[in-house]
């Protein structure tokens, strides 16, 4: 089977709060350990990856977080500037034109231009080469916005091409779409929790990625997975404890139920989503940081 890390672009996607950033950070670490040069892109959000890896913030300039591992927060304003500069070549023109209020007002009315330039920046780094002709990064990992936003982010090239089918912007947009749907280059990585709402949303997300975006998907990570500690017989006895032990019994039962629920949803996902599924254990810690990410990365190294 082809390794996850043989792609050039992995888009980590899922509902808000399921641990996309953790999975992105762990994937990045695992890939970097294998000797891949990795760039993690966070999309217009409060920076999380650097803290998860125990490093200082990088902001909108690419910064190094670990050996072979760099990160950046992609922001619309900065991405727009880079994009315009790439096309216009001259800083003075950029300043004169793009910092004009009237022009800004116009640009704002172009459908989702700010999201497009962010995707454009991702595209640029996937294609970026060093002077020797080799790619600057072997793997770009995008920690995408939460489900709804994430799917529309990936759909953007299609939406935009429907509105603007011709011209220089359309050409760039078409290239971005081609990158996203190319099996050799890209894959989405789905993340979810073994709970009802996230699972339902993930099934829809998978469908959306497949049928609407046409994007290849490579893996499904089930985050916060809890394994049962008690046998079914033991669990049954929890309900029949004497009154003084009942509160502890109820607490233990709630934990076991969570574990059972996790198993139930994992099986449901296995039926509904045709992707290799990897369970990531719930990590009990007060400070979720580098140490926790290391544990998860270790599980991914075989991925």
């Amino acid at each position: 089977m082809r390794s996850l890390f043989d792609r050039r672009l992995l888009v980590v996607i899922g509902k808000g709060g399921v641990g996309k950033s953790t999975v992105s950070a762990a994937l990045a670490l695992a890939a970097a350990r294998r000797g891949k040069r990795v760039l993690v892109c966070e999309i217009n959000t409060k920076e999380r990856i650097s803290a998860l890896l125990g490093a200082g913030p990088v902001g909108h300039r690419i910064g190094k977080l670990a050996e072979n591992l760099e990160a950046v927060v992609v922001e619309p304003k900065e991405a727009m500037r880079e994009y315009a500069l790439m096309i216009l070549k001259f800083r003075s023109i950029y300043a004169a034109v793009f910092e004009n209020r009237f022009v800004r007002y116009f640009l704002r009315a172009i459908p989702s231009l700010s999201e497009l330039v962010m995707l454009g920046k991702v595209y640029f780094h996937v294609k970026e080469t060093l002077p020797d002709g080799n790619p600057r990064y072997d793997l770009v990992i995008v920690d995408s916005p939460a489900t709804g936003h994430g799917l529309s982010f990936l759909r953007l090239p299609q939406v935009l091409l429907a509105i603007i089918p011709k011209g220089p912007m359309a050409d760039e947009t078409r290239k971005m779409h081609e990158m996203l749907v190319d099996e050799q280059t890209s894959a989405a990585v789905l993340v979810t929790l073994p709970e009802a709402m996230p699972v339902n949303e993930t099934i829809e997300l998978n469908r959306g990625l497949r049928d609407v975006v046409g994007m290849p998907r490579a893996a499904l990570f089930l985050n916060g997975f809890l394994d049962p500690r008690l046998s079914p017989e033991e669990r049954e006895k929890l309900a029949q404890l004497p009154p003084e032990l009942a509160p502890a019994g109820a607490a233990l039962l709630s934990r076991e139920q969570r574990a059972r629920q996790a198993e139930h949803y994992a099986q449901r996902l296995a039926v509904d989503i045709e992707l290799p599924q990897q369970r990531l254990p719930f990590i009990f810690t007060e400070n979720f940081g580098r140490e926790a990410v290391e544990k998860i990365a270790a599980l991914m190294e075989g991925a």
Partner: peptide, 26 residues
């Protein structure tokens, strides 16, 4: 009104047709 300079520069990015239509819409 704002000079051909803006139009020329912006259209490098977006194409002229788009700008025209956008202006109409706005």
């Amino acid at each position: 009104l704002t000079g051909g300079y803006f139009v020329k520069t912006l259209s490098k990015l977006t194409g002229l047709e788009l700008l025209q239509e956008l202006a109409e819409f706005l």
